[in-house]
Design a protein around this nucleic acid. Structure first.
Lengths: 180, 180
DNA sequence: TATTGTTATACTCTATAACTATA
DNA sequence: TATAGTTATAGAGTATAACAATA
């Protein structure tokens, strides 16, 4: 029963942060919170099958979907993780016999990552759970609402991508400006 | 220029996962991805001020906003972290002199967490950056779109809360059912 | 008995930089 | 020179279970 209301900023927000848009801050807060609770619920659904971290599951899902071994950096790009994190992740997957490193046939700097039968078995059991959880979570939204939702998220993501290519955003004024 | 298209499932999705709704899975994927890139961009904005983890920043923001010392479990509830994680987080904040533990005046099982002047100084510098980043990120959405976006997120979150109170979601059929 | 918080353990993930090998 | 990946280091977060103190 708790925590099901929209997150809203306090009444003094506009006065305290003159350059900021309350609706944008609220949208951001609700976005992050919703993503977190959804991820937690998905995690709860697949945890009983195997203790796989979100990154480990996502990597296996990418490999399973690709249907062929992939270079390490391709997976890293999809997961938005650094090459060092990818190395660590591959170590974990190999230790559990869920994936293997193969030499790249033509470029000896690269490696190919292949999913094992065990890895495929586990991810094939998890994917229906993940999809069922997502399906249940969006039960309350109509088809049109879902499409609109995706469009809004994509618009947001496009904007953030542009921002990420430049300097970090700075506030217009650090302190409340004196009335002119 | 990459990664700015909506995430969509493949053409074989409906056949492979009969019980799942493609639009729901797509909505979930786009939601999580958008939340991640936004968090990363916000992190990038405030990292130069102090190397504060998202949890540490959020805890300080809660304390700053409350204007008074709070019991540890109140902060843990807000951040959706366990009591053990909260202990670890408080250790970090105390080590950096950003927060302090105080004895609770009436209930000796509890502690009160107070923000230090240094903690307040840092969070007061970070908040305008966070708000400016959120404001810029949602620049492309109208007021109406933002309100609708928040409503959809809240509807989703309410549904997930209900799900989280029960058994984990299971798929209807593990394998493709034979045609009857 | 239930609640609050700590401790202990072990693992995962991250960031950064230096490094090797290869292209 | 640039790219792919590893290593080393350090830190932060997580989950879990056992535990002490208090209500």
């Amino acid at each position: 029963m708790s925590g099901t209301e929209a997150i809203r900023v306090g009444p003094g927000f506009a006065a305290e942060f003159p350059g900021a848009a309350a609706s944008a801050v609220e949208a951001a807060a609700n976005l992050v919170r919703a993503a977190n609770v959804l991820m937690d619920e998905i995690q709860r659904g697949r945890a009983p099958l195997a203790p796989l971290s979100p990154s480990a599951f996502e990597a296996l899902a990418v490999l399973d979907g690709a249907g062929e071994p992939l270079p390490s950096h391709v997976i890293a790009d999809r997961l938005l993780v650094s090459s060092a994190s990818m190395t660590s992740l591959l170590d974990t997957l190999e230790r559990r016999s869920l994936a293997t490193r193969l030499p790249h046939p033509t470029d000896r700097r690269k490696i190919l990552v292949d999913i094992t039968d065990e890895g495929r078995r586990i991810v094939d059991e998890m994917l229906p759970i993940v999809h069922a959880t997502a399906t249940a979570a969006f039960r309350g939204l109509t088809q049109d609402e879902r499409q609109l939702f995706i469009e809004l998220l994509t618009k947001l993501r496009r904007q953030v991508s542009e921002m990420a290519a430049g300097e970090p955003t700075r506030p217009r004024a650090r302190r409340k400006p004196r009335t002119a």
